[in-house]
Write a protein that binds this DNA or RNA. Sequence first.
DNA 1: GTATCTGTTCTATTATTTGTATAACAGCTA
DNA 2: TAGCTGTTATACAAATAATAGAACAGATAC
Lengths: 133, 133
Amino acid sequence: MQLTLDLDSEVPIYQQIRDRIVEAIADGDLTAGAALPSTRQLGVDLAINFHTVNKAYDLLRRQGFIRINRKSGAVVRRDRLSGPPEAGFADEWQSRLRTLLAEAVAQGLSPQEVQQRAGNVLESFATPKGSMT
Amino acid sequence: MQLTLDLDSEVPIYQQIRDRIVEAIADGDLTAGAALPSTRQLGVDLAINFHTVNKAYDLLRRQGFIRINRKSGAVVRRDRLSGPPEAGFADEWQSRLRTLLAEAVAQGLSPQEVQQRAGNVLESFATPKGSMT
DNA sequence: GTATCTGTTCTATTATTTGTATAACAGCTA
DNA sequence: TAGCTGTTATACAAATAATAGAACAGATAC
């Protein structure tokens, strides 16, 4: 959990934390059952208030990425590829995908270029950690 | 310019306007040189304040999608596929793409499924308006 | 048991963002 | 001239973001 933040970004801190953890799950750096740092500990590490971390964790919980027990703390709920997505997730997600891809096409990137970039990103997710020799 | 808004959405109104217009450009519904409605007129049509429309237009202008003259009003700056993107756009965009794709993969969608959906969206952009028979 | 760490909840404050509102000015056009 | 336009300024209410302090209860380590 290195997790670098950009305090000057327009993106809220709790959203950045949420995004980095989601990416870590997709990358395979965080697998099912992996424990996240406590909110207070991560707050100290990132030099931010633990309430902000708590907000990020609560968001991840509501979106189905982690489970939070008073006992074991925050734990990654499900490994990638090992179950169907949350109900109603796909539609809302594809709507956001459409907006994001439209932005690139409207800026002048060719659909081929966009598809290439998406493929590269997905490949980086599918590739296990230390498997490039 | 039908442009449907969801006033109950978490997404700010000015952001929704911006997103719909960007999608219209990618779809080919708005081509280079096309004039957008005046801020006051669109405000009336959408039953919102014209300052909110102005904020959306100003955002589109700063992001390079439109030009605004006191004379001709808001005009689409560049058609899709007809020029290089704004400087520094690709990097920041790919970062957001990575976050969005990670979300789908972490939710359990297979990379193949994700790539398929991205391909479908891009295909809908590449396909001219009334070309499905 | 005691101490510590944890998640959880509550209240509070400050700053920023969002959306609306009114007004005024300047330029273009019918 | 009258009307529409973009632009700018100010103001306000509501919501959001981030911080802060305090307290409670359950789990864990000594």
